[in-house]
Simulated scan of single mutants.
Amino acid sequence: MADNETGGKSLQDIMSGDLFANSSGELVSVLNFMEKHGTPLSPYQLQGIAYLRYMQAKRGNKAYEPIISTITNMAKNLTFPSTFIEVINAYFTGQFIDKRMMNNALKGGSK
């Protein structure tokens, strides 16, 4: 789909919000959690963010905040759509989502 057809939203945005807005609050809560935590930042990204925050504190301004926000906000777009689909399928087929299954899904692994 082109960006103008979806209003500039990513697949992850649509799956975590609009598509299941009228569904169970539990499913929407899980998808919203996954949207923010589906793909963890790498150690290098965390080091970069820490360094940028250090530089901001040293200079006394928030000059690097747009870079930090971009890094953290773009992480959700790196979460594989299949991760969302696995959780949605598990929810609707009545499979119990245990901690092990959620950790596997969030790591992007397959069963």
Results as ranks from 00 to 15, higher is better:
residue 66 P to A: 06
residue 70 T to A: 11
residue 17 G to W: 00
residue 28 V to K: 15
residue 62 K to W: 00
residue 7 G to H: 08
residue 80 F to E: 14
residue 57 A to F: 01
residue 46 L to A: 04
residue 54 Y to Q: 14
residue 102 M to C: 08
residue 85 I to D: 08
residue 1 M to G: 09
residue 8 G to F: 10
residue 39 T to N: 12
residue 85 I to T: 09
residue 90 A to Y: 05
residue 51 Y to N: 13
residue 89 N to A: 09
residue 13 D to H: 12
residue 86 E to F: 11
residue 65 E to P: 04
residue 82 S to E: 15
residue 23 S to V: 02
residue 79 T to N: 03
residue 29 S to R: 08
residue 82 S to T: 14
residue 61 N to M: 05
residue 47 Q to N: 11
residue 5 E to P: 00
residue 10 S to Y: 06
residue 106 L to M: 15
residue 101 M to D: 08
residue 68 I to S: 05
residue 30 V to C: 08
residue 35 E to D: 11
residue 76 K to A: 10
residue 13 D to S: 05
residue 110 S to Y: 10
residue 24 S to M: 05
residue 100 R to E: 15
residue 101 M to Q: 11
residue 63 A to C: 02
residue 47 Q to Y: 07
residue 100 R to T: 14
residue 20 F to D: 02
residue 90 A to L: 08
residue 13 D to T: 01
residue 59 R to L: 12
residue 17 G to Q: 04
residue 76 K to S: 15
residue 38 G to H: 06
residue 96 F to H: 07
residue 1 M to P: 02
residue 34 M to V: 13
residue 99 K to Y: 07
residue 88 I to F: 03
residue 6 T to K: 05
residue 85 I to Q: 09
residue 86 E to V: 08
residue 98 D to F: 11
residue 67 I to E: 04
residue 59 R to N: 14
residue 83 T to Q: 15
residue 110 S to V: 09
residue 101 M to L: 14
residue 23 S to M: 06
residue 72 T to N: 06
residue 34 M to N: 04
residue 104 N to M: 07
residue 13 D to E: 14
residue 50 A to V: 00
residue 72 T to R: 14
residue 67 I to Y: 00
residue 90 A to I: 01
residue 17 G to T: 10
residue 68 I to C: 04
residue 91 Y to R: 06
residue 54 Y to M: 12
residue 29 S to L: 05
residue 79 T to H: 04
residue 24 S to Y: 01
residue 28 V to A: 08
residue 12 Q to L: 01
residue 85 I to P: 01
residue 69 S to E: 12
residue 105 A to F: 09
residue 42 S to F: 06
residue 71 I to L: 15
residue 71 I to K: 05
residue 7 G to N: 08
residue 99 K to M: 08
residue 9 K to I: 00
residue 2 A to I: 10
residue 51 Y to T: 12
residue 99 K to G: 04
residue 45 Q to C: 06
residue 88 I to S: 04
residue 20 F to A: 03
residue 110 S to G: 10
residue 96 F to N: 11
residue 41 L to Q: 02
residue 57 A to S: 14
residue 76 K to D: 09
residue 14 I to G: 00
residue 111 K to M: 06
residue 31 L to P: 01
residue 109 G to Q: 06
residue 12 Q to P: 07
residue 25 G to C: 02
residue 58 K to W: 04
residue 86 E to W: 08
residue 28 V to N: 03
residue 56 Q to R: 13
residue 57 A to V: 02
residue 19 L to F: 06
residue 44 Y to H: 10
residue 60 G to I: 06
residue 20 F to G: 00
residue 76 K to W: 04
residue 77 N to A: 09
residue 59 R to I: 02
residue 66 P to T: 06
residue 63 A to I: 03
residue 63 A to E: 12
residue 90 A to C: 09
residue 69 S to Q: 13
residue 39 T to Y: 06
residue 80 F to I: 13
residue 71 I to V: 15
residue 100 R to Y: 08
residue 110 S to K: 13
